[in-house]
Simulated scan of single mutants.
Amino acid sequence: MAKKFKRSYKFAVKTSLYITVFLSVAVALYAVFTSGFEWLPILVLALLTYLFSFFIIQYRVEHFIYKRIKKIYDNVSLLDSTTLSPSQVTTDMASLTREVERFAEYNKLEIETLKVREAYRKEFMGNVSHELKTPLFTVQGYILTLLDGAIKDKAVRKKYLQRANKGVERLIYIVKDLDMITKLEAGELHLDLEDFNIVELIQNSFDLLEMKAAKKNITLVFDMPYDRPVMVRADRDRIQQVVSNLIVNSIKYGKKGGTTEVSIENLIKNKVIVRITDNGEGIEKENIPRLFERFYRVDKSGSRKEGGSGLGLSIVKHIIEAHNEKIYVESVFGVGSEFSFTLEKSKKTPEVGNKSKVSKAAKAL
Rank of each mutant, 00 (worst) to 15 (best):
L23F: 14
I57Y: 01
T20S: 15
A28C: 11
A46F: 05
Y50M: 00
E38V: 02
V25E: 01
I72G: 11
D74H: 11
S53F: 00
F22Y: 15
L78D: 15
S77H: 05
E38C: 08
A31C: 15
T49D: 05
V25A: 00
E38T: 06
V76N: 04
G36R: 07
I42K: 06
S53M: 10
H63S: 12
F33R: 00
F55E: 12
V27K: 13
T49M: 00
Y59M: 10
K70T: 11
K67M: 09
L78P: 15
I19T: 02
V61R: 00
T20V: 11
G36K: 07
R60Y: 04
S24N: 06
Y30R: 11
F55Q: 13
S77P: 07
H63A: 08
L51C: 14
L51Q: 03
H63R: 13
F54M: 04
V32K: 14
F64E: 06
A26F: 13
I19Y: 03
R60E: 00
K70E: 13
Y50V: 02
L47H: 14
V44N: 04
G36P: 08
F37E: 10
T20Q: 07
K70V: 04
F52C: 05
F22Q: 05
Y66M: 04
F37V: 14
E62T: 14
Y59N: 13
A28R: 02
I65A: 09
F55M: 12
S77Y: 11
F33Q: 04
Y30C: 08
D74W: 01
S35C: 09
S77W: 09
I69Y: 02
V44R: 12
T49F: 00
F55T: 05
V32W: 15
H63L: 14
L48R: 08
T34Q: 15
Y18I: 14
